[in-house]
Design a protein around this nucleic acid. Structure first.
Length: 252
DNA sequence: AAGGTTTCCAACCGCATTCCT
DNA sequence: GAGGAATGCGGTTGGAAACCT
């Protein structure tokens, strides 16, 4: 069912303000709308979204056009499940920028370090997967308890899985479906983990999160559809390393 | 097979910030 | 510098798909 709402288009053209009242479409985008937006942006470039909405013939708001382009139509947008490496990076970056000292969490800042991933995607991932696990452990996602669980239980296992996957593949190559990429796992990311420092809350965190020791890495955080860029790995793991060095007494 | 529940994610909303005149 | 428009951002929602009973 098509949903329209009475709305305003307000654009300025050569210094003249043009305001127009028309029906604005809402809800899911159709293939036709997608191709209209794609064609328009390809021709005229990104930005000035109200103009895009007005001149492309789309009965959408500029905001809606922008969002659709950035989160879906942009050529750089990457599809598929969040990989293990991406999970690791999200968790680490979140602990840097998502702590309580920050006025607000910058998903887009995290997304900058995961090429092809949008802030919306990362936000959804965090809320649906990570927060869910915090709930299972009956603690707040920002609580020290949950942060410890991430640091001492989940992160080492994640790194272990990444390393194992690398080790099992000949010549340091990981094969994900039809794609083969070289993988750089920086062991410095591995937090100190000892029996003393490990935290256990009734059932183990691993059990709660469904991390399978024998699994192929498609644990609780999604996994499954691997896809990776070596450039991403090297550059971002390096970046992360710098962050960790810069923040000796940091939150991780 | 049917109905109920849960999960996932695209899209919306409101507010904040930046840009432009 | 002021005011308004455009853009960006994080939180939330709705509905389709997947899963469970």
């Amino acid at each position: 069912m098509e949903v329209y709402e009475r709305g305003f288009f307000s654009i300025s053209e050569s210094g003249h303000q043009i305001e127009e009242v028309m029906d604005v479409r809402k809800g899911q985008w159709t293939e036709e709308e997608d191709s209209m937006l794609k064609a328009y942006v390809t021709l005229h470039g990104e930005g000035r979204w109200n103009s895009v909405a007005r001149f492309s013939g789309l009965r959408r708001t500029g905001k809606s056009c922008r969002l659709r382009w950035l989160n879906y139509l942009r050529p750089a947008v990457r599809r598929g499940s969040i990989t293990l490496e991406e999970q690791l990076l999200i968790i680490q970056l979140h602990s840097i920028w998502g702590n309580s000292m920050e006025p607000c969490l910058r998903w887009s800042k995290i997304a900058e370090h995961l090429p092809g991933r949008t802030d919306n995607e990362i936000k959804n991932y965090w809320r649906t997967k990570v927060q869910k696990q915090a709930k299972k452990l009956e603690c707040d996602v920002n609580s020290p308890k949950f942060r410890d669980a991430l640091r001492y239980e989940y992160t080492p296992r994640l790194i272990e899985q990444i390393s194992r996957a690398k080790h099992e593949s000949p010549s340091g190559q990981l094969t994900y479906g039809n794609e083969t990429e070289s993988v750089q796992v920086d062991q410095s990311l591995l937090p100190e983990s000892s029996s003393e420092t490990q935290v256990t809350y009734g059932s183990t965190v691993a059990e709660t999160w469904g991390i399978d020791e024998q699994s192929n890495g498609n644990g609780w955080l999604g996994g499954g559809d691997y896809w990776m860029e070596s450039e991403w790995c090297e550059e971002n793991i390096w970046f992360l390393q710098q962050q960790l060095y810069d923040d000796e007494d940091g939150v991780i």
